[in-house]
Design a binder for these strands. Structure first.
Lengths: 198, 198
DNA sequence: TCTGTTTGAACGAATATTCAATTTATTGAA
DNA sequence: TTCAATAAATTGAATATTCGTTCAAACAGA
């Protein structure tokens, strides 16, 4: 088996330490010193592998986004290829995986905030946002008139973000099951409302 | 006319400077120096009137929250006392601030993030959240079965937060009208879906 | 003059970055 | 295999910068 090189291991170590420290101390409290401590490495290592703290933060956000992407793909592949099923899978994925961790919503919110003052983080955020939206529109197109599909997709996306925000606020008392249920209820309502009575 | 005392003027000056600086530089970039510069006062004045930077930030969030509260009250008073009308007024009020100031969503997001590591800001945030929710539930109770009113209220609240987030992300390309329209569409769908076909 | 207001230089704490020194790993000749 | 030479990885003290707070002094209005 091909063991990962030292560089791969160290980068992952530092990214995971970064996530842990942001969870515990927030974005402001996430200093190089604390991250180095949590990873049991030294402060100098960060600039060696990531150039700067900013580089590490960007890599960490990239990691979060790609985790989400993989969650979505995995859950979609496991469901029947029918539009409604796929939509439900998207909702499930957005509240599962890395996101299951009770504190990770806090980390997401920190990155969202930070993204607004960092062009690169903003770019990553936008790419992700667009993917979610076009995924939703694709399946909604098969369930309702085209002009309704876009607005419904925007509403679902906002709903997901909104529940994330509330999860972040609720400090551990997150109930992803409830958020998922409410999102799904909305989707069914939207399908129903945009097709009249069957 | 009763002119406000120096203290009242200075406090307001500093709060408005704080909002402006957070808009421009983010929460992290909002230093005492920049705030003092924006208010055309000196750095020493902050501790004189607010004790510390943290005190100024808390006062600023209090100001934002009370502005929102007044917006809601004013818009509700101007509408007929019917449940659906009142719900629409709540939605309008929650997006009226965005219209006034294209960048204010960014400031809200900064405060939300900060609130998670500051008990006092968190407390203020929760009070506001509860008020919104109980307002919504009160009027929804008159439009649908009680057990549906709570979940619908939670969905509306999440939707409002979600659109705020998207507004914050869109960097000036905000379209509050669209967000308001989508929220209202959802409300009508929810009322319709929870009453069967009339 | 007296009181409340305002200033801003000085200070100390916190922190990202740098880099010379040290440790660890790899190589290849004997 | 052994071992010295070389390269790569890692350390952490030193540095420079940034920022919140303090407070003695200056100022303004009554």
């Amino acid at each position: 088996m091909a063991r990962p090189g030292v560089e791969t291991i160290r980068r992952q170590q530092l990214i995971e330490a970064t996530l842990k420290v942001i969870e515990q101390h927030g974005f402001q409290g996430a200093t190089i010193g604390k991250i180095a401590g949590a990873s049991e490495l030294s402060v100098g290592i960060v600039s060696h592998y990531f150039g700067s703290k900013q580089g590490l933060l960007e890599a960490t956000m990239r990691y979060l986004l790609s985790s989400l992407r993989h969650d979505v793909q995995a859950l979609m592949a496991a469901r029947p290829n029918e539009p409604r099923e796929r939509l439900m899978a998207i909702v499930d994925a957005n509240f599962s995986g890395v996101q299951t961790n009770a504190q990770s919503a806090k980390t997401w919110l920190a990155f969202w905030t930070q993204a607004m003052h960092s062009p690169e983080l903003m770019r990553l955020q936008r790419v992700n946002e667009r993917r979610l939206l076009s995924n939703l529109v694709f399946y909604l197109h098969q369930l309702m008139p085209p002009e309704r599909a876009l607005t419904t997709a925007q509403t679902i996306a906002a709903l997901i973000d909104g529940f994330w925000l509330r999860a972040a606020m609720s400090e551990g008392r997150i109930e992803p099951n409830e958020a998922v249920a409410l999102c799904k209820t909305y989707i069914d309502q939207a399908i129903y409302a945009n097709n009249g009575v069957h």
